[in-house]
Computed example of a mutant assay.
Amino acid sequence: MKRITHVFPWLTPIRIFQKRKLRHIQSLFSHKKFSVNKKASKDYPYTNKKHQSLLRRKLGDSDPKLQENKITNLKIASNAIDGTVIQPGETFSFWKLVGKTSRKKGYIEGMLLSNGQVIKGVGGGICQLANLLYWMALHTPLQVVERHHHSFDPFPDEGRVLPFGSGAGVFYNYVDLQFFNPTQQSFHIKLLLTDNHLKGCISSDYYWPYSYHVLEENHYFFEKKGIIYRTNDIYREVIDKTTGNIIEKEFIMHNVSEVKYKVKESKVFKIDS
C-alpha cells in the first residue's frame, strides 16, 4: 500500500511537521539521559573501533558539486559531535547533538535521498557521518536503540568496503540514530575530516575484553512484480580478545531495499509472487 504522501505529495511538508512535533513532545517526556558534548576531563586510552570513509566517490550520475557541499556540512555536524562522552546509563542521539541543519549554522545544499531520488537540500550529505558512527558503535558494547535504513538502494557499488545495508539514515529530528551505554565505563567519540576522508574513533576509559566482527550473509538481488530488490542479513560475532574464540554470533538486521539502478540480469533471482 502506498503512503498517503506518495499519492498526495503536497501533504509531505504537513506530515513532516507532525512527525517533528511528535518527536519533540516525546523527548520532553522521555526518561532517557542524553549525552551532551563536553570537553573530556580525562584520557580514554583504550581504542574500541577506528574507521574512515572517503569524502568523494562516484555515485551514479549525481552532481559532483553536491559532494563538495557535503564536506562543508560534514565539518559542521562533526564539530557538534566530536568530543562527546557517553557516560554509563546515557544515550547518544545524533539529532540531540547536531540539531536542525540550517543556513544560519552554515549548512548549504547537499545531496539528500527522497523516495529513492537524489535531491538537493540544506544539510544534505551528513548521513555519511551517521553511517560512520553506526558502524563504529556496532564494534563496541554500546546498544543501538534506534537506527533506520534506507528503503532504496540508489547507487551501484563503487568503492564500497562495508556490507550492504550497514549504514544509518537520519532526517531531522524523528529519523534518529541512538545508542545506549549499558556498561560501567565511558566511551569517547573523536571525529576528524582530512582532505580525503571522514575519520572516527570510539575509545573507552577501561579495557574491554571483547572485540566484534560484523559480516553479511544471504546477499542477493531478486525481482518481484517487475521491481528489483537487494537483500542481506547482518550478523555480529563477539570475540574473546584473550583466546580469539567466537563466543557469540548475534543477528543484527535483515535488509530489503528497492534498487534504483541497472543490475545484470544474470545476478537477479526472479520471484513469481
Rank of each mutant, 00 (worst) to 15 (best):
Y229M: 05
H148S: 13
L215Q: 08
K38E: 15
N255L: 07
L138A: 06
Y134W: 11
F155Y: 15
I4E: 02
E248C: 06
K262S: 13
F8N: 13
P182C: 07
W10M: 13
F164S: 10
Q67E: 13
W208N: 07
N69Q: 11
G110E: 03
K49H: 10
G200N: 07
K100Y: 03
Q185K: 06
G244N: 06
F251T: 09
I247V: 15
P209Y: 03
H150V: 11
S203W: 03
H149V: 12
V214T: 14
A77P: 03
K21V: 11
T183M: 02
K120S: 14
R147I: 06
Q26P: 00
Q184K: 14
K120Q: 15
S211T: 15
N245F: 09
T47N: 06
S53Y: 00
S35R: 04
A168W: 01
S30C: 09
P154N: 09
K249D: 00
L59C: 10
K75G: 06
K58D: 14
D176A: 08
P163Y: 05
T101E: 08
V122M: 05
I16H: 04
K262G: 03
G121L: 11
I234Y: 02
N73L: 06
T140I: 05
G244M: 07
G159I: 13
G121I: 12
N196W: 04
A77G: 08
S41E: 15
I86L: 07
F269R: 14
I14K: 08
Y210W: 07
Q18M: 14
P88Q: 08
T194A: 07
N181V: 04
D233T: 11
E217L: 11
E146N: 08
K70M: 12
K70H: 00
I234R: 01
I189N: 00
Q143H: 08
N255V: 14
L11Y: 07
G121A: 11
R160P: 00
S151C: 07
G167M: 04
V144H: 05
S266N: 11
K50L: 12
F34G: 03
Y261P: 01
G124C: 09
L177A: 04
Y134L: 12
R57P: 02
H148G: 06
V7A: 09
S186Y: 02
D82N: 15
A80M: 12
N73R: 01
L54P: 03
